[in-house]
Amino acid sequence: MATGGRRGAAAAPLLVAVAALLLGAAGHLYPGEVCPGMDIRNNLTRLHELENCSVIEGHLQILLMFKTRPEDFRDLSFPKLIMITDYLLLFRVYGLESLKDLFPNLTVIRGSRLFFNYALVIFEMVHLKELGLYNLMNITRGSVRIEKNNELCYLATIDWSRILDSVEDNYIVLNKDDNEECGDICPGTAKGKTNCPATVINGQFVERCWTHSHCQKVCPTICKSHGCTAEGLCCHSECLGNCSQPDDPTKCVACRNFYLDGRCVETCPPPYYHFQDWRCVNFSFCQDLHHKCKNSRRQGCHQYVIHNNKCIPECPSGYTMNSSNLLCTPCLGPCPKVCHLLEGEKTIDSVTSAQELRGCTVINGSLIINIRGGNNLAAELEANLGLIEEISGYLKIRRSYALVSLSFFRKLRLIRGETLEIGNYSFYALDNQNLRQLWDWSKHNLTITQGKLFFHYNPKLCLSEIHKMEEVSGTKGRQERNDIALKTNGDQASCENELLKFSYIRTSFDKI
């Protein structure tokens, strides 16, 4: 039985969820670079991206490699990797027998973001014989899940209580170790020597080791999670996991709180800001991140802002960003909400898709409305799209047979046209069989910064309504002859009103 693990408890099935942008060198404390989270699957090609990484700022997932063999891993080693800020997950990587050479110096898994409450997941690794993470000293947050690894031993010899604050939620089941077939031998045991430290858990006094050649490092209890030197002297209180010299914040392997210019500090002093819960960055760093993602459509890219001495992905609820200094300031009234469309555009074809934009005031991208039916549609669209004030790209209304009016965009005031449909149009209306009105132009103002209007096959939309939009939106004169079809717009509506004058002759039985 794995020490510190839980057996036999019912657990939810383990679901495996399925960018080499360097964020800056980590400095003297770390020998390499800070790398983003990685999802490495199918083959070993991307694994080489770990070569210079000291910190993975995010998670590391290595999974679904069915053609790899043990010899493929023999020359692979990433000794610079010290810390993973989120979680480490391995799933069905064939041929991998140990992690001792792959990650010989991995010391800390912070667990800032977890995989279903777990910071370390080893699942269905069919050839893994031992973990071998002999320098792993601290899992700051989260638990361990090690399950269905039929060859995995050296679990009962690990004292997880020396690595985690609590072992109650560890789930370590259905491994070879369960069948008591392992016969784990710690260093020196074969020669009758006791080389590794022994600890007591559940009444068992057991030597602690990761492999037959690597003991588990056990520091004096007084050192807590700070770690200790090879001689057993406690590291500085700002260290986490390990250090090369005692009581020196510049000799830590990793930091308990924050890293700044080669030393570990309790908090980031001005003019620095907390970033990702582990390091200090200056304003320029946060500003660069903001600008890199301002026009990016890459998933996970955030326009970072500053709030409460932190550089964070977005302002919290009730705050909006001051564009001059990136500071989050309290909103006066309802907060603006910028919604970034991942692929640059979004099609609204149902109430469900409209709900995804609920509360958005600025759309960074283009909207395509293609709704053919739905219950209580006008009210639903207004509830979900009615706060949109600005669209950076274009607005396209296409084959939306259920629409009679666009009044559900009740606050839309600006279409920038930074991206144009077919390279020309910022407003595009095609084949809307029941569209009769755009907006009530006596109450609604709309500016279209650039781009043209396109109207074709809107049989109940009168040309007068379209011409009014040209005047109000500032697009009059931009359109070419064929942009607004004269014969297919309003051709099934009563669009022309003329005053009919009647004269009559009164007659009676005795007068003409």
Rank of each mutant, 00 (worst) to 15 (best):
M321T: 07
L332E: 14
T320F: 14
A198S: 08
L50F: 05
K310I: 08
C223V: 01
P270F: 07
I222L: 05
R162L: 11
S143V: 07
P270V: 04
L106K: 00
R141M: 07
L90R: 00
L76C: 08
H214I: 07
I201F: 13
L106R: 00
D159P: 12
G188P: 09
T140C: 08
L50I: 07
G183Y: 11
C234P: 06
N282S: 15
N179G: 12
T189R: 08
K224L: 10
I158E: 04
T140S: 09
C223R: 02
P316T: 02
C264G: 00
T320Q: 06
C315F: 03
K100C: 10
D178H: 14
G241E: 02
P249T: 11
D86A: 02
G142M: 01
G142R: 01
Y304R: 03
P330W: 05
R110A: 08
E180D: 04
A119S: 10
A190W: 10
G58P: 00
L155F: 08
S284R: 13
Q303H: 10
Y272W: 10
M321V: 15
L81C: 01
H127D: 10
N175M: 06
P271Q: 09
Q299D: 08
S98G: 02
C293Q: 01
I82S: 06
L64M: 13
C228W: 01
S284N: 13
L260Q: 01
N195D: 07
P270W: 14
D159H: 13
D248I: 03
Q276W: 03
C280E: 00
N257T: 08
C331L: 04
W278C: 02
R263C: 05
D248P: 01
C252S: 00
F116I: 12
F285H: 07
S323V: 14
E147L: 13
F205V: 13
G37F: 06
F258Y: 14
Q303C: 15
H214K: 01
G300R: 10
A156M: 09
Y304H: 03
F275H: 08
C255W: 01
C315A: 06
L152Q: 07
R113I: 13
N195C: 08
C234R: 01
D288K: 11
T199W: 11
I306M: 03
Q299F: 06
T68G: 08
M321W: 14
L332I: 06
G203T: 07
P31K: 08
N309V: 03
W160V: 01
S225G: 07
V265F: 04
I158L: 12
P313Q: 06
F103K: 00
K294T: 06
E181N: 10
G183N: 05
C228N: 05
P246G: 11
D39V: 13
P336T: 05
A198G: 05
A190N: 10
I158T: 13
G241L: 02
S143T: 06
R92T: 04
T140V: 11
R46Y: 05
L332W: 13
C335F: 05
S323G: 14
P187C: 03
Y259M: 12
H302E: 08
M137R: 10
G300W: 06
S296I: 05
C186T: 11
D165Q: 06
F275D: 01
H214Q: 10
S225T: 10
C301Q: 05
I201C: 14
D165V: 11
G32R: 14
G300F: 05
P220L: 06
G333Q: 09
L102P: 01
G37P: 06
E147Q: 13
M83A: 03
G232D: 15
C264Q: 01
L152T: 03
P270C: 04
Y134V: 15
N138E: 05
L131A: 14
N325L: 06
L131I: 14
N322Q: 13
I56S: 01
W210F: 12
T45H: 09
L289A: 09
L99E: 00
R263T: 11
C264R: 00
E314P: 08
K294N: 02
S98I: 02
I306F: 14
G32H: 04
L99M: 11
L60C: 03
F285K: 01
I122L: 08
T320S: 05
N42F: 10
T85C: 07
S77T: 13
C239Q: 01
M65I: 03
C186Q: 01
K217V: 11
L260P: 00
P334N: 09
G183Q: 05
R298N: 06
I201R: 06
K294V: 03
K310H: 05
R113W: 05
S244I: 14
R46I: 04
H214F: 14
D165F: 14
K80P: 01
A198E: 15
L102M: 08
G300I: 13
N282V: 04
P36M: 09
G318A: 04
F78T: 01
L81F: 01
L260V: 10
T107L: 05
I158D: 05
Q299V: 07
I109T: 00
V144I: 13
I122H: 01
S112G: 06
L106Y: 00
F66H: 14
G37V: 15
L240H: 14
M83P: 00
N202Y: 12
H290A: 08
L44N: 04
P70M: 10
